[in-house]
Amino acid sequence: MLRSYPPQIVLEAVLNGLLTGAVYALVALGLTLVYGVLHIINFAHGAMLTLAMFAVLMVHLGFGLDPYLAIAPLAALFFLFGYGLQRFVISPASRNDDGAILLVTLGLSIVIENALLAVFRSDTRSLTLDYSFSIVDLGFALLSLPRVIGFGVAILVAGALWAILALTDTGKAIRAVAKEKLGAALVGIDVNHVYAVTFGLGAATIAIAACLLMPSFYVNPRAGNAFVLVAFTVVVLGGMGSIPGALVGGLIIGVVESLCGLYLGDSLGQIGIFLIFILVLLLRPTGLFGARA
């Protein structure tokens, strides 16, 4: 059943998998960060990604802003959006009950998705840019330019996020709150502020992911969900709450999807992802980089 391909084609599939995987990793970063600190799964993650993708579309159609130039303003905007969402909607509505937070984020996703449906209808749209179909020729492989850029920026963002968490006082406060809330409050860390900053950082990574996706992808009011489903697998594979885990997990998942697509056909490409998901849950529930509970 398996055909054998020349090594060059397999190599190209692996490279393409890495490129896609980096964007998966970026979407997963936001999810794992919020989980690691607030200990909740943000069910609105997918809807927020869709919202960000529409935002990229709108700033391009409205102001002629290139998606890559929109990275900084949209990341800042979504940081504020995420901060406000946690501070003024999710936290007061859920009264810090974990079960309630879950339902509030689920409710938010329904609200966002239907608002987008009301405004944009269910049509699928995409951007046409001069470089959408540009190719990078490595000599041994041909790669799509927007996806190469996406890979580079995603790795940079993961590095920047790691640096923030490891080196700044705010980042240290985030890590402190993640493991020891009372201890954090008693050294003077405003825990609610840190929660909101974390949620804001998660939203900002989503906005960046949307900017990287739009030059080569399409958007409709449900477009974000496909990525977040994969991102969940990435988070489980890498270890819940682990930043390096999200990055490595994303790259692995990207390659697995690409190779499965090559050998089993495009329509079955994602089957490998879910096989990994089940295997990880069975054999190593803490994931690659996860700490034991």
Binding site: E180, A184, L186
Partner: peptide, 13 residues
């Protein structure tokens, strides 16, 4: 400054 019962240090740091 309150040094709490059970220390409540940040174990991951």
């Amino acid at each position: 400054i309150h040094v709490p019962e059970g220390r409540k240090i940040f174990p991951n740091m």
